[in-house]
């Protein structure tokens, strides 16, 4: 299977197998105007199995979301056909408007326009907690 290389955009490589669809959702890639390729469960020398997402045409995605879903993933930023940056994104200290608190008793479930903010409480286990009610969320 081949997917054309992109001129401008982002390739998110070495994603833990099974995590591409979650990242696709959280990055809002279902927008019909976007050109996106998802490769799931492909062979990887490094990981055994991995997922890859290629996004054509845009480079300004919320990188924190990638760090949240998989801090081990490699983010390749491509401009004019050249790889200009290659990096991993550490799990961010705060996630703003990425997750929604599922606690029905949380103030964020009723208060209008309140940002949904989660703070990293355990980096090793990648546990986030709602800053309002402390409900946990793990990636």
């Amino acid at each position: 299977m081949t997917v054309d290389s992109i001129q401008n955009g982002i390739v998110i490589d070495h994603l833990r197998a099974g995590s591409a669809m979650k990242l696709y959702e959280l990055l809002g890639l279902s927008d019909p105007s976007l050109t996106v390729a998802i490769m799931k469960n492909v062979t990887s020398r490094k990981l055994g199995r991995k997922d890859i997402i290629k996004i054509d045409g845009i480079t300004d995605v919320d990188l924190d979301v990638i760090g949240y879903v998989d801090p081990e993933a490699t983010v390749n930023i491509i401009r004019d056909g050249e790889l200009i940056e290659k990096k991993s994104i550490p799990a961010p200290e705060r996630l703003v408007n990425v997750l929604r608190c599922k606690n029905p008793r949380c103030i964020s479930s009723t208060e209008q326009e309140l940002p949904q903010i989660f703070a990293l409480s355990d980096r090793e286990k990648r546990i986030y907690r709602c800053i309002y009610c402390e409900t946990r969320f793990s990636s």
Binding site: N103, R105, C106, I107, S108, S109, T110, E111, L114, C130, I131, Y132, C133, E134
Partner: peptide, 22 residues
């Protein structure tokens, strides 16, 4: 609601004491 006093404190210009949030 849980976290209500936190939201109040973030918006008030006077001290807020949490007398119980859910």
């Amino acid at each position: 609601k849980e976290g209500a006093a936190f939201v109040a404190a973030a918006n008030a210009s006077i001290p807020v004491i949490n007398a119980g949030d859910g």
